[in-house]
Simulated scan of single mutants.
Amino acid sequence: MLDQALCDRPVSQWLVLKSMLSNWLMTPIFVVLPLLILVFLPWMIPRLRWKRFWSGLGTVLLVIYFTATFPLTIAVAKKGLVAFIPPDPGTTVDAIVVLGRGEPFRHSRVKVAAELWKAHRAPLIFASGAGDGSEIVERLKAKGIPDAALGEEHCSRTTKENALFTSSVLQPRGIKQILLVTDPPHMLRSLLTFKGMGFEVISHTSSIPSELTSSRKAMLMFYEYMGLVSYGLRGEFLKQNLAQQKNPPIAKVKNSAKFNLQKQHSLF
């Protein structure tokens, strides 16, 4: 298991800002009203320069905001995110890694992970994510997955931390080949990040919850495109060396039946 201090650290300012931005964009009146002011206010100020520019900018942003939630726009954005994901060849691996994404996504992830395990694709399922890791494991137990085949970390708050903390737990135990389970928009960034951490990755997507609103789905696409750019510029997709990192998370080995790799090969 990971050092508990990793779970107890304060939330980063970036995650706070991201949450605030999401709440703002998901509340139409907070977006539409300022943009309408930008469209009409310049014409009410007689000496203001570049009236057409500011009014036109507001109009364009309004059009983008409303068309972003169209089903066709969402479908095209999703297609761009999944176009370069290799198909699952169906081979066996060392472990199935399930990434958390919040409560609405858990059902499909648990279902996919359980099906993969029962199909003998891997002897171990490892769940990763703050607020998700422990809950996913409990749901997998309810589906009949034995305790010895399950592991989790519940400290990671970003995709980079998913990969970093998972590698610090699994790689010292010789686990290199993984089946990665997450939703289609999130898969490309996750795949590249886990490969950067030294894993051999096979992707296997789980569905986006049907109850998500169009605005929520559009937000997922927006974050993933921004995440790809951000991670790419920061070099997160390049090969990482955990041993050379300044303060890497150290996986503490704990003798427990919950994560006994000596037992896992006897489960099939």
Rank of each mutant, 00 (worst) to 15 (best):
P185Q: 02
G196W: 01
S256T: 12
N260H: 13
L179Y: 12
S190D: 04
I175H: 11
K254S: 11
Y223R: 05
H204N: 08
S214L: 12
T205H: 03
N255Y: 10
S210W: 11
D183G: 13
T213K: 09
K258A: 15
K239W: 06
L192M: 05
T193N: 02
R234A: 01
T193L: 03
L192N: 03
M219D: 08
S214W: 11
Y231Q: 01
I208C: 13
I178W: 02
M197N: 09
Y231M: 01
E200P: 10
S190Y: 00
A251E: 12
I208L: 11
F222A: 08
A257F: 08
V181D: 07
S206R: 10
L228C: 06
T213W: 08
F237R: 01
S207I: 12
A218R: 14
M219N: 11
V201P: 06
N255V: 13
K246R: 14
K258W: 15
P184L: 01
F199P: 00
F222C: 11
N260A: 15
L233T: 00
P249C: 10
L192V: 00
L233G: 00
K195P: 01
T213A: 11
F222K: 10
S203N: 12
A257I: 04
I175L: 09
S203H: 15
S206Q: 14
S256E: 04
I208G: 09
F259A: 11
I178N: 07
N247D: 12
P184H: 05
P184V: 02
P248V: 15
T205L: 02
L212G: 13
N260K: 14
M219G: 03
A218K: 07
I175T: 10
M221F: 08
H186N: 05
V181K: 10
L220D: 05
M219S: 13
I250H: 05
A257E: 07
Q244D: 11
S190C: 03
T205G: 03
R234H: 02
T182G: 10
